[in-house]
Simulated assay, not measured.
Amino acid sequence: MADMNGQDPRVLANQHREFQKRAEMVQQQMSMVQISLEDCNRAINTIDELNTVSAGSEIMFPIGSGSFIYANISHTDKAVVDIGAGLTVERPLPEAKEILQRRREKLTTALDNMNNTLAQLSQQMQAIESFLAKLQQPQGNAGSQ
């Protein structure tokens, strides 16, 4: 994309639209990864809180849409954790927390990569916009001096 001289402005405009579509897709993916990251952080925080609770304690358990039910905790030493591909395993809290922390690291790395991709797409779009803007400027300035 460094040298655009000689390229058809229509081709560049089409490239710009493609970059825009890709950027929108990356932004949507980033939103989904961000939601997963927040969910992972909530799970880690919940595990941390379980260390301060004893078995038999009553808690308010979230069921979605800002709604809760009361529940008694029967086990405070284990958690069931999703390990991917629809599989879950029961693990001691420290091990469950490690699994979630590794997942959080992967999600953070993915988010960083997506940010880099988005920045590259933005630079490419700006280069095209700048080039097309120069083409639209009147060429009469050189002959008037």
Rank of each mutant, 00 (worst) to 15 (best):
I99R: 00
V89D: 02
F68N: 06
T76A: 12
N115G: 15
P94A: 04
A133W: 06
L93C: 05
P62V: 07
M114Y: 09
I47N: 02
D48E: 08
Q136M: 08
L111H: 08
D77M: 02
I128F: 02
D77A: 03
A133M: 05
G84S: 06
A110M: 13
E58A: 05
L107K: 05
K78S: 10
A55M: 05
R104D: 02
T76V: 15
F68D: 03
A142G: 08
D39N: 12
S67I: 00
L93Q: 04
G84N: 10
A71K: 12
V53M: 13
S54C: 05
T108H: 04
N45G: 07
S65T: 08
K97A: 01
N45H: 11
E98T: 05
H75G: 00
I69Q: 06
D112G: 10
S57I: 01
S36K: 09
S74N: 09
T109N: 13
I59P: 03
H75N: 13
P92I: 07
S57R: 06
V81G: 05
T117E: 15
M60L: 13
E38R: 08
G56R: 01
S54G: 14
G64E: 09
I73G: 00
T108C: 00
P62W: 06
N41W: 10
S57Y: 02
T117V: 09
L132W: 09
R42H: 14
A110T: 15
S54V: 12
P94M: 03
D48R: 05
F68V: 02
Q136L: 09
P62G: 12
I59G: 02
I35N: 12
N45L: 07
M32F: 11
Y70G: 09
S31Q: 14
E98F: 00
A55L: 03
S57T: 10
I59Y: 02
E98R: 04
S36G: 03
E58F: 11
N113A: 06
A119M: 13
I63V: 14
N72W: 04
I128C: 01
R103P: 11
L107V: 02
D77Q: 05
G66I: 00
E49N: 12
G66V: 03
G86T: 11
Q101H: 00
A110Y: 09
G56V: 07
G64H: 03
K134H: 07
G140H: 13
V80F: 11
I44P: 08
V89I: 11
T109F: 11
N72P: 03
P138I: 12
E129S: 11
L50G: 05
T76C: 15
I99N: 04
G66A: 01
G66H: 01
S67M: 02
V33W: 13
R42L: 09
A79H: 03
G64Y: 03
G64S: 06
E58L: 10
E58G: 04
N45T: 04
A142Y: 15
E98L: 03
